[in-house]
Amino acid sequence: MLTKRIIPCLDIKDGRTVKGTNFVNLRDAGDPVELAGLYAEQGADELVFLDITATNEKRKTLASLVNRIAHAINIPFTVGGGIASVEDVRVLLDAGADKISVNTAAFKRPDLINELAAAFGSQCIVLAIDAKQHDDGDWYVYLNGGTVSTSAKCTDWAIEGVKRGAGEILLTSMDHDGSKNGFAVDITNKVSSALSVPVIASGGGGTPEHFFEILSQRADAALAASIFHFKEIAIPDLKAFLRKRQIPVR
């Protein structure tokens, strides 16, 4: 049976893993290659690396880091952060990434998704969406690491992204990110129900119960960072907890 995936996320800044709260206050969380190897060994189903300082001059550094990661682990991994062109993606895939995630650049120029899907296939294009709930109760897309608001509704953009060729959606609730108060269940269910592709829930996972809550509903995978980096929950323990509650996990 297809299992629900547990995905540790590593935010990368200047080649180190960092973690903040609500997208700010960054703390050092270790060497990404070392952490990646540890997570793979512990049974992580996939890894996501987001380069939060991605700039053109740093792209080469990122590619060499990606290559080291690819040699260290034998599970799939996604790389994101500042990707804006077919060439950006080619460099990362050639370095050994399995998938890439796009966010702001895709929103600003949606044809990017079509171009990437045509060049590399939908299976390696993850559309990352950072969303926040407004007073009207609806969820809206935010850009540039959550600093720029838009008037686009999260579900509409997810549907359009998939139509254009995104193979998965990584949905981060900015309201929940770093809070450890649980995932955004309602919007994740809504987006997942509207789509034929998997949805990865992100933001707010703080306890095994939170993972059970989100994975027992419509999310296909759950992503978290700090609880894994700071060893608050070990992946084997989390999976044992979920398995006991009838969530299919590897």
Binding site: M1, L2, K4, D45, Q123, V197, P198, A221, R250
Partner: peptide
């Protein structure tokens, strides 16, 4: 009654 493509770990 499942999503397609299938993405992930299966037996």
């Amino acid at each position: 009654q499942l999503k397609s493509p299938q993405i992930g770990w299966n037996n």
